[in-house]
Design a protein around this nucleic acid. Structure first.
Lengths: 148, 148
DNA sequence: GCAATTAATCTTGCACGCAATATAATTGTG
DNA sequence: CACAATTATATTGCGTGCAAGATTAATTGC
């Protein structure tokens, strides 16, 4: 009757948590040359897919809430990668618009993915399996959050 | 030639990252009654498995570096769950020792896991698959970090 | 034996994530 | 059309994570 809690190495959440932390550590030096952090990179990835969207839409794409997104976007504006412009038709919404430099950055940053990939000595199939499992968990949790 | 970067929904790292964030949001309200955060909970989980270990050993179990672990352990000491004691045989090392309250807490906190589990409507097999994939990624990344 | 190195922990500073709350614009309602 | 409810964004405060550097104690080389 000594085992009231599960050892860390057996916990799903701890595996997820520590794998994610390790991944962030791997990203850091690769993004540093561009003066980008991973969350900032995520915002740009979203904008490279769809530009000129509202902060709300950007939050939906990146899964950041406003408390995280607002300062992130302000920082990226300071760095000159994007602009925040008020929408004339609805003064509440702020739209985010990549600058020419921000659009050009996509080509530069395109080297990050392959550099990252070649350091991870795992078969593509395993990474896709991980993505699939993580996405299904995420989807389940989002569904939960949606019901309050 | 427009696709220089991969859309976020297809990225393994983003799936890992956002699933982990969602998991932390799920944990928060469950740990709040015990005035614990997830990282603090992780430290306690490690100590419940093996008590009276050095900060270095605790860091190895939790995968926290000293910059994260030191303030975490100090906070847990303030809350009365553990004590930090200097090792007489080597004055550099600080050993971490659960208090009686800290040991008793394990039983209380044991309700967190099942409460969490019953909110995640995914089959056990899928969670184990996710754990397996995450652990293998983690292991790969740790191996990388070990080679500097 | 003691200087130089190594080891264990601590401190500082920065950038998240997010809950809670505030502010301001818009919409719905009587 | 006033005004309460809703919506979009911003602010505040707290707790991480971690790189970089500092501090102190032990160990190693010569």
């Amino acid at each position: 009757m000594t085992a009231k809690t599960l050892p860390l190495p057996q916990q799903v959440c701890f595996a997820l948590y520590s794998a994610n932390n390790a991944m962030m550590r791997l990203y850091r030096p690769l993004l540093q040359p561009f003066d980008l952090t991973y969350p900032q990179y995520v915002v740009l990835l979203a904008l490279w897919q769809q530009d000129n969207i509202s902060l709300g839409q950007l939050g939906a794409a990146t899964l950041f809430d406003s408390g995280t997104l607002t300062p992130l976007v302000k920082k990226l504006e300071q760095k000159g990668w994007l602009q925040r412009v008020s929408d004339a038709s609805d003064e509440r919404v702020k739209k985010v618009l990549l600058t020419a430099a921000g659009r050009a950055l996509e080509t530069e940053v395109a080297t990050v993915m392959p550099a990252l990939r070649c350091q991870v000595a795992l078969p593509e199939s395993q990474l896709l399996a991980l993505r699939e499992q993580a996405q299904q968990l995420l989807q389940q949790l989002q569904q939960l959050e949606a019901c309050r």
